[in-house]
Amino acid sequence: MANTSPSPSPSSEGRILQFPPFQSLVDDGFWRRLSALKLDTLRTDQSPIFISGFYAPCSHSSVSNYLALHSESLPSDSNMESPLERVRGNRNKCPIPGTLLNTNTLESFRSLDRESLLKAEAKRILEDIYSGRAEEDPSVLLRFLIISFADLKKWGFYYWCAFPALVLDPPATLLNLKPASEALNSDEVVSLSAACNEWRNSSVTTDVPFFLVSISPNSGAILRPLKDWELCKDEGQKVLFGFYDPCHLPTNPGWPLRNFLAFISLRWNVEKINFFCYREKQGTADMRLSLVGEALVSPPSAWRDPECIPKAVGWEPKGGKLMPRFVSLAESMDPERLAVSAA
C-alpha cells in the first residue's frame, strides 16, 4: 500500500487525510425494476430520474459497508411525478438521494461527459451547504450519481456510479486518529456509546448519518442534529462532528467525511475539526472500531464565489481502474433462455 501511495507513512504527524473510495452494490432487483420502467413508462425518455441509495455504518470489523441500490431505489409507478418524497429507511438502510441517467444507446452512454456531470453534482452539494439545506437534511452531502445503459435485447447492463466529493486544495491535514476508546476518557466512552445507541434506536434519528456530539466537562455525551450547531457552540462544550462511517479500516475515515469536512469548514468556519467515525459491531456502538480524529481544513477561497464550479472526484473505480461495470442478467431475465432451462 505504502509504495503506491504518494503520502508519507501513516504514523507520521500531519499527513494528508486520505479516504478509501466509497463502493456501490447494485442488486439484481434494481436492474429488473429499471427494465420494467424503461419498457412500460420511460421508453425513450432520457431525463434524469431521482432515486435513493441506502447505506449504514460499518458493522463488521472485516468488511466495509457500501451504498446499495435495490428495486425500491427506483420510483414506483405511482410516484414517478413526486420524486422529492423522502423514502423511508431504517437503521440498516439510511436513504441517500441520487440521480440516474439511463441512456438509450451504448454510444450515448460512452459519450456522456462524466467530468461535467460530476462537477454539476458537486455544485449542487456546494449550493446545499450554502443554503443551509444540508443542515436540515444532511443526506444531501452524500448525493450520488449513476449512469447506465440497459441493453434490453441482451439483458446486459452497463453502469457507473459516482460519489461526488468536493476536493479540498490543499488537502485536509490529519493531526490525530485513534480508536474512540483511546481518544476519550473512560467516562466519555461509556456515555458516548450510550448516546449513539439511543440515536440509533430512535426512529426519528436512526437514518440520519451526520450529527454533532457534544461532551460536557463532566464527560456526559449527547448526540444532536446538525441544526443545533449554534446552541452547541455557545455552550462551550467539546464538540465532535460525527458521521456513520461505512469504512472498516482502522487507519482511515470513510468517504462521507469528505463533504462533511467541506460543509463544516464552509458553513461554520471551523478550521480544526474533531471528527468521529461512528462504527458498530453486531448492530451496536463499538468504541474500539469507531475512530476519533483531528484534521486541519481550509476551504479553497474560490468556493466563496457563488458561480464557482468546484473541483470534484468520485467516479467509482473497478479493479483499480476508472471504468464502468457490466452485469448480465440474461440467464435470469431472457425469456428465451428461461424457456430453454425450464425444458
Partner: peptide, 30 residues
C-alpha cells in the same frame, strides 16, 4: 446469474479515463 465477466465486454477498456482524476487526487486512498 450472469456475473460481471470482463470477457464478455472487451470494449470496456476503451472507457478508461485517460485523465485519471482519482489517482491524481492526493486525498483518495489507493
Amino acid at each position: 446469474f450472469g456475473g460481471e465477466e470482463d470477457d464478455d465486454i472487451p470494449d470496456m477498456e476503451g472507457f478508461e479515463d485517460s485523465d485519471n482524476l482519482a489517482e491524481s487526487d492526493p486525498a483518495t486512498l489507493q
